[in-house]
Write a protein that binds this DNA or RNA. Structure first.
Lengths: 348, 348
DNA sequence: TTGTAAGCGTTATCAG
DNA sequence: CTGATAACGCTTACAA
């Protein structure tokens, strides 16, 4: 730095426009104008102001700026499991897209919270977020009401049965089709007794996937066991595999065996797959076929090669951004994200 | 709802304290007091106010509140690769811990940005974050200066050579020890010619891990090839494996072979591992040993069983939260996160 | 082109 | 216990 007198003076507080105004010898309004895109300021004033701001480390306070505008640049993103291989990829893509659009991502992790979820979510509104995006987890009616009353938009991702009177943009991958595709594929592989592994949660898209799977199997007269317990996690898949694929033996009680398993998320399916292969010593797809849902990046890794139902991350992110970009008063819509079978090596 | 006249009237804008005051028949100040923990309000007034607020869907505007206080509840979290298996786990833990502490997480994804990174990061200050946490990516001097000038704290995670005069809390896992442990383990396995795979980035902790690894190998007289190219990704590991483990043959040019590879992150190491096993048909650890760094959750999966250097996620998160919780004026410190070898099945 | 003044939704101070 | 009133840092008429 060659600017004379530019010794950095840490104020211990945020630099304000008044500080800059004083340094540049203009009024606060002029400083404001210098930072407002379409405003009229003389070249020399702008130059002095920008220099002063640079020296002092001034940045416009967007919190204060937001007090004037009806919408902030804050987008609340809510989820409960950012370590999940698909959700983390989704979050990575979404946060990147938001950033590119000049929007800020206010992240809220609702998992592992003892308290009131609806109170937690409502906290997002304290920051006047323009939109709340629900990636996963519950959708309390309370939040819906709050958003509606405050004119904030909501974007619900993969929530097949949105609460009554919801004022939200819906983004849905075709769970019914996906579940059906999974069933068809296992049937085609010649499975005679199958199972579907869902997490314990009630209202999610996972249930819809499982339902469609069961319906299609029913139609074909193939018996299906429904395992619905635990979280949406690898561990759940592992536990299910131990129970559903137990080999008959003197100490094991009744003989339970399945030759095809559908995990409603890839993480669950990978838990099933690895447990079958490495813990139970089964051949996949020789002894049992496994199919998942999502197509998370790691599912394609050679260590897994999981056959799965893909919901395109690009499409999903594009649709989410479309919804977020809608103007405040626009009517709500619904975006459908296509789904298709990705053939790999875990179904016979 | 049994309240008469409680029909929800969506205002299309955020509900303010003035709205509540009018409905409850009190002044704005009293409304404010009703929402301030230690304040004095009559029981009846509080009751009326809370009821009105509930009906209208009022929430205290923390943006406006922040104008008065010197610190906000916003913590900026910056990273570039949230889909990485270790970073996503870290983000999951951190966001959860922040939430439990009543702090909000303002997430910024700096990857895939064409623009000026330092300008992007500075945008966080526009929201008056009390602290900026850098999970990964570059640390522009510009940002350091800006934070210092504005009295915002910084927390630098695994940035071994912080810029000169940095006013930041440092959180460091013992890269030197980790790199050495990896080298010792490969040497112990009898490796004679090893390689280390780093991503292309310069200033990160990954370089320190690689340096320590090389130094220890040098000391032992074991030749080491350094592959430093591409991103911190699975793909980088895969490409490195193809180059470093190429079998001799007429069309391949010089014979390049290594019997031990250290990937400076688990994601890289997993790329090496899977490519060696499934694409090159090599036995791990029979033909080649592979060791990683991080101990991401998926490294422990039976499909991988990666031997790795673990940096405890719990310790890391705890230290990060400690740093975040420090009061505004507290002197900066340094937290060391221990590191140890996790023995699994990819080193002979 | 610039400055003055009002207002955004809070909280804090100070009378009453 | 409550209500004016003055900040907080900014934007935006309005006036000069």
């Amino acid at each position: 730095m060659t600017c004379p007198g530019s010794k950095i003076a840490a104020l211990g507080r945020f630099v304000s426009a008044a500080d800059v105004a004083e340094r540049a010898g203009v009024s606060r309004s002029t400083v404001s104008r210098a930072f407002t895109p379409g405003a009229q300021v003389s070249k020399s004033a702008r130059h002095r102001i920008l220099a002063a701001a640079e020296e002092l480390g001034y940045r416009v306070n967007r919190l204060a700026r937001t007090l004037h505008q009806e919408r902030s640049d804050l987008v609340g993103v809510v989820g409960g499991n950012f370590a999940n291989p698909y959700i983390s990829a989704q979050l990575d893509a979404l946060s990147s897209a938001l950033h590119a659009r000049g929007l800020q991502c206010l992240l809220m992790n609702t998992a592992r919270t003892g308290g009131d979820v609806s109170e937690d979510l409502a906290r997002l509104l304290d920051y006047r977020v323009r939109t709340v995006v629900l990636l996963s987890g519950a959708t309390p009616d309370e939040l819906i009401r709050l958003c509606a009353q405050n004119g904030a938009r909501m974007v619900l991702i993969n929530r097949p049965h949105p609460p009554e009177g919801t004022l939200a943009d819906l983004i849905l991958c075709d769970s019914a089709r996906g579940g059906r595709l999974a069933a068809e594929r296992l049937a085609q592989a010649g499975c005679r007794k199958v199972a579907v592994v869902v997490s314990g949660s009630r209202t999610s898209a996972k249930t819809a996937r499982a339902d469609a799977f069961c319906a299609e199997m029913d139609r074909r007269g193939i018996p299906v066991t429904r395992w619905a317990d635990g979280a949406n996690s690898y561990q759940t898949g592992a536990e299910a595999a131990r129970a559903l694929l137990a080999r008959p033996g003197p100490h094991l009680g009744p003989h339970i065996e399945h030759d095809g398993i559908f995990g409603v998320t890839d993480e669950i399916a990978l838990g099933v797959l690895n447990t079958a292969r490495f813990e139970l010593g089964l051949s996949v797809p020789g002894d049992v076929s496994v199919i998942g849902f999502d197509d998370a990046p790691i599912s394609g890794w050679a260590s897994h090669g999981l056959t799965t139902i893909r919901q395109s991350l690009e499409e999903l992110t594009r649709a989410t951004m479309e919804a977020i970009k809608r103007p405040a008063g626009a009517p709500t819509t619904r975006f459908d994200v296509p789904v298709h079978l990705v053939e790999r090596h875990t179904v016979g």
